[in-house]
Nucleic acid binder design. Sequence first.
DNA 1: TAGTGGTCTAGACCACCAA
DNA 2: TGGTGGTCTAGACCACTAC
Lengths: 213, 213
Amino acid sequence: MTGWQDIETEVLRRIRDRHWPPGSAIPHEADLAREFGVARATVNRALRGLAEAGWLDRRRRAGTRVAAHPVRKAVLSIPILRAEIEAAGAAYGYRLLRREVDEEMLAVTALHLADGAPYAHEDRKVNLAVVPAIADVDLAVESANAWLVANAPFSHGNFAAGAENAGAAMAELMGVAAGAALLVVERTTWDGPRWITEVRLTYGAGHQIRTVI
Amino acid sequence: MTGWQDIETEVLRRIRDRHWPPGSAIPHEADLAREFGVARATVNRALRGLAEAGWLDRRRRAGTRVAAHPVRKAVLSIPILRAEIEAAGAAYGYRLLRREVDEEMLAVTALHLADGAPYAHEDRKVNLAVVPAIADVDLAVESANAWLVANAPFSHGNFAAGAENAGAAMAELMGVAAGAALLVVERTTWDGPRWITEVRLTYGAGHQIRTVI
DNA sequence: TAGTGGTCTAGACCACCAA
DNA sequence: TGGTGGTCTAGACCACTAC
């Protein structure tokens, strides 16, 4: 049996073998289809996947070439904090620190706990013009994080991760020494042209973002 | 014209509208094909994409359901440091700090510079049993980073990012105050079962990993 | 065991763009 | 303007799994 995954594997092998070196053109879909004895659509399925993964560059008329610099991509999943903590086998806890409404903006500060210990500090702003319903939610019970995920789907957003030294206040909240290096993740999300929320998550000492390549 | 992207857009709209709420089953491919007036393969193409993006859960016999917790995914591209620096419009510089061969392992420490300023510190180990050729490379000229990308393709790897306080030596190298919070990225890559390299990149103060969701 | 998604085929037309 | 990838079709068979 020859399926598209077999073809993908074989093409990838030829790229790794340098049988088809970086920058070189590989045979047309029609030729490969003849060689493997499958329909062109099957070859297309395999090559499309490799192109999406960054191994190939494909252009109409110009043909398919092996990418000069195979840019590897890591997929970073962005779970709800509660799910992240419970998936690690810890008990989830939540503490609302501050809630303020200023004109069309809701500002929330909260602490997420794992087995009672500080896990992440959440500093969030929400656009009330877009999600007015959150003004009526008791954020001491349900976190803005969880509510928004369930009730305010977004179309796209930005993601940035960096390192910062803990200030005195943050250090006390997170139970670390002042100046400790903490991982900070910032996200802004939009629903089409409308800005929904901006969040800044400061994780506890030693926390890592992990994924596979 | 009705293409698979139009169907993808429409299905996504119904999910966001909660016309098809989280956890609910959506019509079969055959029904949707009839509704949109296209072939089942076209519907399949659209739904497959949404499933890969995390919006849908699909199982044979069980049908297609809207994901209960739409786990959003960010795609993190992992470029070569030189390309990353030059893409930012800065001049790339490189300085080899240490090179040691111990049995079957090559250890390299180097500094990557952007416009002459420290950009990232690289601490790397390479398995010489898998890529013996790197032993003959003049790493003072070409970075191990660049050489490996071009000559030692890997099949998979791990990725972890965290924050650390700069020690005295690192602080001096990177031109920051001792104790400054720095972003540290660790990667291990494999070619099938064979371990290739393990690298630890310590970025300069304020550096962020950025992507879109 | 029956119903669902996964995949393949042979053919077709189209969009794009290098020559 | 011709060749290449992108997409769609109608039909078919298969793999998996809830029932």
